Amino acid sequence: DMPHRFKVHNYMSPTFCDHCGSLLWGLVKQGLKCEDCGMNVHHKCREKVANLCGI
């Protein structure tokens, strides 16, 4: 059981939050991507995600 390793990410195409399902808005640093499993989340959704990475 490992925690997610979220890192700020710049998305080049429209991407949706894997937690709430809404679009990650903006041009740069729109959200966070787990370096291990690739989960994408809003900055505000980070604390709502279970801290178990499903690598």
Rank of each mutant, 00 (worst) to 15 (best):
D1Y: 04
D1E: 08
D1V: 13
D1A: 11
D1R: 04
M2Q: 04
M2T: 09
M2I: 15
M2P: 06
M2F: 13
M2V: 03
M2C: 15
M2R: 04
M2Y: 12
M2S: 05
M2E: 01
P3V: 15
P3Q: 15
P3C: 15
P3M: 15
P3G: 15
H4T: 03
H4W: 00
H4K: 03
H4N: 05
H4G: 07
H4D: 05
H4R: 03
H4Q: 04
R5E: 04
R5T: 07
R5S: 15
F6L: 09
F6N: 07
K7L: 10
K7M: 06
K7A: 05
K7F: 14
K7C: 12
K7G: 06
V8P: 12
V8G: 13
V8W: 07
V8Y: 05
V8L: 05
V8E: 08
H9D: 12
H9L: 12
H9K: 15
H9W: 08
H9V: 07
H9C: 09
N10C: 10
N10E: 02
N10V: 03
N10R: 03
N10A: 03
Y11D: 01
Y11I: 03
Y11K: 02
Y11M: 04
Y11R: 02
Y11T: 04
M12V: 10
M12N: 05
M12Q: 05
M12C: 08
M12R: 10
M12D: 04
M12P: 10
M12Y: 10
M12S: 08
S13H: 06
S13K: 13
S13C: 10
S13M: 14
S13R: 09
S13V: 06
S13A: 08
S13P: 03
P14C: 06
P14I: 13
P14V: 08
P14L: 08
P14W: 08
P14F: 07
T15W: 05
T15G: 05
T15Q: 14
T15P: 03
T15M: 12
T15S: 07
T15K: 08
T15V: 05
F16T: 12
F16A: 09
F16K: 14
F16P: 10
F16R: 10
F16Q: 10
F16N: 08
C17A: 00
C17D: 00
C17N: 00
C17Y: 00
D18S: 10
D18M: 05
H19D: 13
H19P: 14
H19C: 11
H19I: 08
H19F: 10
H19K: 08
H19L: 06
C20L: 00
C20Y: 00
C20F: 00
C20I: 00
C20Q: 00
C20W: 00
G21Y: 14
G21C: 15
G21R: 15
G21W: 15
G21M: 09
G21E: 14
G21K: 14
G21H: 14
G21F: 12
G21D: 15
G21N: 14
S22M: 10
S22H: 13
S22F: 06
S22I: 03
S22V: 06
S22E: 06
S22T: 12
S22C: 13
S22G: 11
L23Q: 03
L23S: 03
L24F: 06
L24T: 03
L24P: 02
L24A: 07
L24E: 04
L24G: 03
L24R: 01
W25N: 03
W25I: 07
W25Y: 04
W25V: 07
W25R: 04
W25S: 04
W25G: 03
G26N: 03
G26R: 01
G26E: 03
G26Q: 02
G26S: 02
G26V: 02
G26M: 03
L27K: 01
L27R: 02
L27M: 08
L27G: 03
L27N: 03
V28I: 13
V28M: 15
V28F: 07
V28A: 07
K29P: 03
K29S: 11
K29M: 09
K29E: 07
K29W: 08
Q30M: 03
Q30A: 02
Q30K: 01
Q30W: 03
Q30R: 01
Q30S: 01
G31F: 01
G31Y: 01
G31R: 01
G31C: 01
G31I: 01
G31V: 01
G31D: 02
L32I: 14
L32Q: 06
L32P: 03
L32W: 11
L32A: 10
L32S: 12
K33I: 13
K33T: 15
K33C: 14
K33E: 13
C34V: 00
C34A: 00
C34W: 00
C34T: 00
C34L: 01
C34R: 01
E35Y: 11
E35D: 12
E35K: 09
E35H: 13
E35T: 14
E35Q: 13
D36I: 05
D36G: 09
D36Q: 11
D36R: 06
D36V: 05
D36K: 07
D36N: 05
C37L: 01
C37T: 04
C37K: 01
C37R: 00
C37P: 01
C37M: 01
G38D: 11
G38Y: 08
G38V: 11
G38T: 10
G38F: 15
M39C: 09
M39V: 13
M39S: 09
M39G: 12
M39T: 13
M39A: 12
M39P: 00
M39K: 08
N40F: 02
N40M: 05
N40I: 09
N40E: 07
N40R: 10
N40T: 11
V41N: 07
V41E: 02
V41K: 05
V41I: 11
V41Q: 04
V41A: 08
V41T: 12
H42E: 04
H42R: 07
H42D: 05
H42C: 06
H42N: 05
H42F: 00
H42A: 06
H42L: 04
H43Y: 09
H43S: 09
H43P: 04
H43L: 09
H43A: 08
H43C: 09
K44S: 10
K44Q: 07
K44T: 08
K44E: 06
K44A: 11
K44L: 07
K44V: 08
C45H: 11
C45G: 02
C45I: 00
C45R: 01
C45V: 00
R46Y: 05
R46S: 10
R46L: 09
R46Q: 14
E47C: 13
E47D: 07
E47M: 08
E47L: 09
E47I: 12
E47T: 12
E47P: 13
E47R: 09
E47N: 13
K48I: 11
K48A: 12
K48M: 09
K48G: 12
K48T: 08
K48D: 09
K48W: 08
K48C: 08
K48Y: 11
V49P: 09
V49K: 08
V49A: 05
V49D: 11
V49T: 07
V49M: 11
V49N: 12
A50H: 05
A50K: 13
A50S: 10
A50T: 07
A50C: 10
A50M: 09
A50N: 09
A50P: 07
A50V: 10
N51D: 02
N51Y: 05
N51K: 08
N51G: 07
L52A: 08
L52I: 10
L52E: 12
L52S: 15
L52R: 07
C53I: 12
C53T: 14
C53F: 15
C53D: 15
C53G: 15
G54T: 09
G54D: 14
G54M: 09
G54N: 12
G54F: 08
I55T: 14
I55M: 05
I55R: 11
I55G: 11
I55S: 14
I55L: 06
I55V: 10
I55W: 07
I55C: 11
